[in-house]
Design a protein around this nucleic acid. Structure first.
Length: 281
DNA sequence: CTGTGCCTC
DNA sequence: GAGGCACAG
C-alpha cells in the first residue's frame, strides 16, 4: 500500500500551520493535525504530481487532481475547538495557492450545471473564526454534487457529525469521491465547465469517533466507532445516509487508497472490515 | 452583496 | 422557527 517517506513526513510536520506542538522528544514525527489518520493516496506537495497534489491548509488537508478540477479526498479534524460563532461566509472563490499555470476552477464553473458546489470540509465544521469559515469556500474544497445528495443525505450526515461532537466526541473525517458521471438537476453529465471539472460518480466518507481528549491516534482501538458511507452522486430522492453504510475495506477496494494507515495493523484490519450499525441521529 | 428557496430537525 | 444547504440577479 502507499506510504510516504520520513523526510516527507518531516516536511509536512513543519508545513502544518495549526499543528499543535507535541513533545520534542517524540520519536516519530507528528503528522499534521488533519492527516492524523494518514495520507491515503500518498499525495505530495509536488507540482510534478498534478493528479495527486497535496494541499495543506490550517483548516484541512486534501489531495487535488488538476485534470479533474476537484479533490481526490479531503481530510480534517473536527473537535470543539473548531466550532464557534463565525457566520457562513459564502465567499466561493478560486484557490490561488495552486501551482502557477494550473487551471483554477471558479465559482462560475458550476453555474447552471445542475450540480451544487458541494463542500468536502463543510462550512459549519469551521466556525471558530471568519478566516477558518472562509477557507472552506475555496473551490479546491468543492465537488459537483447532486443537490438532493448534498442538501439532504449529506447535510444530514454532516449534522450528525457535529451532534457527535456536542455529545463529547472528536472526529477525524475523510471525504472523497471516485468514478465519473452523476445525475444533477439537469440530468446525467460526466463533466461541467467545458470538460474542465469532472462530475464524480460516487461520494464517500470515513468518520473515526473518539472521546474528546484522546486525540492520539494510538488510542484508536478495535472498539472505536468508525462510520464509512458510500453514496451515488444522484439527484433522486435518496434514503437517509444510514442505509449507505459500508466498510472501509470496500472503499479502499473501490479507490485503491490506504485509509487509516496510521492505525496499528491489527486494529486497522478489524475496524476496516466492520460496517457501522450505531445510531444515525 | 442581497434576497430567496428548500430541506431537516 | 432555527440552522444548514444552496441559487439567481
Amino acid at each position: 500500500m502507499t506510504r510516504f517517506s520520513v523526510p516527507a513526513l518531516l516536511l509536512l510536520g513543519f508545513l502544518a500551520v495549526s499543528c499543535g506542538d507535541e513533545n520534542e522528544a517524540t520519536p516519530t514525527p507528528a503528522l499534521p493535525e488533519h492527516l492524523t489518520l494518514g495520507n491515503p493516496s500518498g499525495a505530495a506537495a509536488d507540482p510534478a504530481q498534478p493528479t495527486n497534489y497535496l494541499l495543506l491548509k490550517s483548516q484541512y488537508a486534501l489531495s487535488y487532481h488538476r485534470d479533474k478540477g476537484i479533490p481526490n479526498w479531503v481530510s480534517w479534524h473536527l473537535s470543539p475547538e473548531w466550532l464557534g460563532t463565525a457566520a457562513r461566509q459564502d465567499d466561493f472563490r478560486a484557490d490561488a495557492t495552486l501551482p502557477a499555470g494550473w487551471y483554477q476552477v471558479s465559482t462560475s464553473s458550476y453555474t447552471g450545471s445542475g450540480f451544487d458546489r458541494g463542500h468536502n470540509c463543510p462550512s459549519a465544521d469551521r466556525t471558530r473564526t471568519v478566516a477558518d469559515n472562509s477557507a472552506t469556500f475555496l473551490m479546491t474544497n468543492m465537488i459537483p454534487q447532486a443537490p438532493n445528495n448534498n442538501q439532504r443525505t449529506w447535510a444530514t450526515l454532516e449534522s450528525y457529525c457535529r451532534t457527535l461532537v456536542d455529545e463529547g466526541n472528536e472526529l477525524y473525517i475523510l471525504m472523497g469521491n471516485y468514478g465519473k458521471g452523476g445525475s444533477g438537476s439537469n440530468g446525467y453529465q460526466t463533466t461541467i465547465d467545458n470538460g474542465r471539472v469532472t462530475v464524480p460518480q460516487r461520494i464517500w466518507k470515513v468518520i473515526v469517533v473518539l472521546p474528546q481528549g484522546s486525540d492520539d491516534v494510538l488510542r484508536i482501538s478495535s472498539s472505536t466507532r468508525v462510520i464509512a458511507v458510500d453514496t451515488p452522486n444522484d439527484n433522486a430522492q435518496l434514503p437517509s445516509w444510514g442505509s449507505y453504510r459500508t466498510s472501509v475495506d470496500a472503499i479502499e477496494q473501490a479507490t485503491g487508497y490506504d485509509i487509516l494507515s496510521q492505525v496499528a495493523p491489527a486494529v486497522q484490519a478489524t475496524l476496516e472490515a466492520r460496517v457501522d450499525n450505531g445510531p444515525t441521529q
